[in-house]
Computed example of a mutant assay.
Amino acid sequence: MINVNNNRWFLNILTIFSILFIFYMTILPHSELGIGVSKGFINLNPFLIFKQDLTYSSLVVNDLGNILLFVPFGFLLTMRFPHLKLSKVVLFGCLLSITIECIQLFMANRCTDIDDIILNTFGALVGYLVCVGVRYIIK
């Protein structure tokens, strides 16, 4: 079994990689996924995407993708800092997501969307819960 205390450097690298991957997926265009290829927009109406666009692309790539993108971040943050409370992990996930959305404000082909912040934050929460669940099962 892996001793987390002896492998902090490894968790640090994985956490940094998770953050870099988040930036890679949210800042650079990915035409194969339809990300960053159309004219950008700003959405400040929560859950608007669920009311307007229920296509496969929207549900899988956008919604599920936004959640899954932040699950490793929430998981690794919780692994690295075992005494971190749920509220802190959710706050850090939310702040990282807000940072990304603010950067996207200045990019022509990127969308700034309150729904992304909500979904990303939920992903960090899921990562926290998975980590706590894995710890519980291991003990």
Rank of each mutant, 00 (worst) to 15 (best):
D115L: 15
F47W: 13
V132F: 03
L95K: 03
C111W: 03
C131Q: 05
W9V: 13
L96S: 10
I22S: 00
L77Y: 01
I118S: 00
T78C: 05
V4K: 15
H83T: 14
R80P: 00
I13Q: 02
R8A: 00
F122V: 13
T78Y: 03
V71K: 07
F17G: 14
L68P: 02
N66F: 12
A124I: 09
D63M: 09
P82V: 06
R8M: 00
N5S: 15
I117S: 08
N5I: 14
S38R: 10
I22P: 06
D113K: 12
L14D: 04
P72E: 09
N45V: 14
V126W: 06
L68K: 07
M1Q: 01
L77S: 01
L129V: 04
R135N: 12
F17I: 07
C94N: 12
D116T: 14
G123F: 15
L84D: 00
S57I: 10
F17H: 02
Y128F: 13
L77K: 01
K39G: 13
F10L: 15
M1D: 05
I42A: 05
P46M: 06
L77I: 03
F70V: 04
F81W: 07
L28N: 08
G65D: 11
P72H: 11
F73Y: 11
P46G: 04
N120H: 11
F75E: 00
V130F: 03
N66R: 14
T78Q: 02
V60N: 15
K85E: 01
P29K: 12
N109V: 13
L28E: 12
F75W: 01
N109E: 12
L14I: 01
S38T: 10
V60T: 15
L28M: 12
L20M: 05
G40Y: 02
D115V: 15
R110I: 07
I42L: 14
V37R: 03
L59T: 12
V90D: 09
L69H: 08
K139M: 07
N7I: 08
Y56E: 05
I117T: 05
N12S: 11
L44Y: 10
F17D: 02
D115R: 15
G65S: 11
P46A: 02
I27G: 08
V134L: 07
V60S: 15
Q52I: 09
L86E: 06
N6I: 13
A124C: 08
R135Y: 05
K39N: 10
M1L: 13
F75G: 02
T15A: 10
I35A: 13
P82I: 02
F10N: 12
G34W: 04
F106Y: 05
A108C: 00
R110W: 05
I100P: 09
Y24M: 12
